[in-house]
Design a protein around this nucleic acid. Structure first.
Length: 193
DNA sequence: TTTACGATCTAT
DNA sequence: TAGATCGTAAAT
């Protein structure tokens, strides 16, 4: 049983638009035959080589090549010596842009998620980009996975629509060493319940 | 090859 | 408020 998987055309748009519309969608990771999933509640847009907060600011490298590829793929990278982050590559192909998925609200596979986040309260399981990767079991193995079908074990399904009145926008997080206007541009989208 | 530094989280 | 801990990319 699965919902409607978002098609490539969903991702083949402006990265800021995709970041906003990803709110309310359902992120699914198939692990050991089980569905681990959650509703996306927070996302940020990273857009092009000019965006000095974007990893592609230094041009195309082996690490960032995925962001230059076709939309609808996962860009998962490692940072701070211990954390994985999940991004969704957006279009058009050849232009480096991606949406960082910063938080989800767990829906399926809660027992498995609980085991992955020992000693942590349920409302803290996935309320951070590295936390949700740990909770869902995402790491280098899913880097480059096609999000538009189930073969990669990772995809995003149609969810519930989130109205503008439920969305807060603001500057992106964790980029305090980045110069303006990138540091303050409101490319962060968050759902308030 | 070496160094510096992260799109973070957790414990102190 | 600092420590964990290592891949990446710039500097040497």
């Amino acid at each position: 049983m699965s919902g409607h998987i978002l098609p490539p055309s969903f991702y083949d748009r402006e990265v800021v638009t995709v970041a906003r519309e990803l709110l309310g969608m359902r992120l699914v990771h198939k692990l050991d035959g089980a569905r681990l999933s959650g509703i996306i509640t927070e996302a940020e847009a990273y857009r092009g080589e000019e965006d000095l907060a974007c990893h592609a600011r230094h041009g195309r490298t082996s690490r960032t090549a995925i962001m230059y590829g076709p939309p609808g793929h996962a860009y998962i990278y490692f940072t701070y010596g211990m954390h994985w982050m999940l991004n969704c590559v957006t279009g058009p192909e050849g232009f480096p842009a991606a949406v960082l998925v910063r938080a989800i609200q767990p829906v399926e596979g809660l027992e498995m998620i609980a085991k992955r986040r020992p000693g942590v309260e349920s409302d803290q399981w996935c309320n951070g980009p590295a936390k949700l990767c740990q909770a869902l079991g995402l790491d280098k193995k899913q880097n480059g996975a096609d999000l538009c079908n189930e073969t990669g074990g990772l995809w995003i399904e149609q969810g519930t629509a989130i109205s503008d009145s439920q969305v807060i926008t603001g500057p992106r997080v964790g980029i305090s060493n980045v110069p303006e206007p990138w540091r303050s541009i409101p490319w962060r989208f968050r759902v308030v319940w």
